[in-house]
Design a binder for these strands. Structure first.
Lengths: 199, 199
DNA sequence: TAAATTAGCGTACAGTTGTAAGCTCAAAAA
DNA sequence: TTTTTGAGCTTACAACTGTACGCTAATTTA
């Protein structure tokens, strides 16, 4: 097997090992290099052949999580285009994402308020993508002026993420309830922003 | 000096030491017993005379933080009663709180999405207080029916906490901007909820 | 084919952690 | 006054951490 390929594979198994460790009870700052290496099936010191630091691995994970988030947006837009109500479709898509990418979303949430300045900044950047895209979308579809569209988008994203945090470890029925409540609350924001733009 | 009093003092110095360690870069799960003991000026093993665990200390801290939060609410209500607009006064009071009790609010934020199930539950309980009080207040002052009042209150609290997280380490000018944006966004929610209650 | 590169390993070390065991000595109780 | 209690201490240990150093062996390059 080619050397390059093998290296990529090991790198992947390190990343996967890290994600698998980020369960309900662990954060990036609480997983150790040795632990990751153990799960990845390599010697602790071999870790350094792939990452300078645990921090460098952490940033890689945040990047991957951000990528997943952007794919989520794309998927939501596709679904919206084929009808079904913007808020409804978005919330449903988001909730599916949380279910399927449990640890990925958890990583973003935790590091968003976490202890590492670099990680926080990295997560914030990903959330900003969300804000910008949603602002643009709102302006394009409703004609709201940019300041109000931006306020609306930001409020919506914050609400969605907050509820996502709550839904993450909730039972299925509870998740349904949360989703329905979220839809109503998003409706509040949309209607309120509309009213503000009219006065 | 009385034995009882001395014990209370040491306990306090342990708690204070812990709070002082919870700066921008540390969370409850990342501070060690030995470190707390060092700052508190006692031997590591003496810690056990006061707390069973680091976790027991953690829960104590969350309790204290919750207490501070409830005092915040009381203060906000007092100020509102003496005029000045509910949203305006509340946001200003909240922002002052974040400034003055930096590490206290940081603790709540971090542990809200943190790695310890017990801590998360404890923080959630404190936030629930907020929700209930705000729901009651909304019902009493606007006559909104409970389901809508509750949705509104929950959305507002989530938005306030999210913005608080952002404001925590922001520069003073940025904090002002965040406060003004938050006020507008809260207005969206209030207006949206009002509209929902009318249809 | 011979030489160079490099992913991964084993060993090693100093630093940190939580906490068990038992001592001291001042305050409280008898 | 004598006895009991208990907050705080010192010492000790096993477990874990990150990472420096140098080796091996297989792939890649010359």
């Amino acid at each position: 097997m080619s050397r390059q390929l093998q290296k990529l594979r090991t790198r992947r198994s390190i990343i996967d090992a890290a994600f698998s460790l980020l369960d309900e009870q662990r954060s990036l700052s609480s997983i150790s290099l040795r632990e990751v290496a153990r799960v990845a099936g390599i010697a602790p010191t071999s870790f350094y052949r792939h990452f300078k630091d645990i921090d460098e691995l952490g940033l890689t994970l945040v990047d991957e999580a951000g990528l997943a988030l952007r794919q989520l947006m794309r998927q939501a837009r596709l679904r919206i285009a084929s009808g079904g109500g913007v808020i409804n479709t978005s919330v449903e898509t988001f909730m599916e994402f949380i279910n399927d990418n449990n640890n990925v979303f958890r990583l973003l949430l935790r590091e968003h308020t976490g202890t590492s300045v670099a990680f926080r900044a990295a997560v914030l950047r990903e959330i900003q993508h969300f804000n910008v895209e949603l602002t643009d979308y709102t302006m394009a579809t409703t004609g709201l002026k940019s300041t109000i569209a931006n306020l609306q988008a930001e409020a919506m994203v914050k609400l969605v993420f907050s509820t996502g945090a709550e839904a993450l470890d909730a039972a299925p029925e509870r998740k349904k309830v949360l989703a329905e409540r979220l839809k109503l609350q998003l409706r509040f924001i949309v209607d309120g922003a509309l009213k503000a733009s009219q006065s």
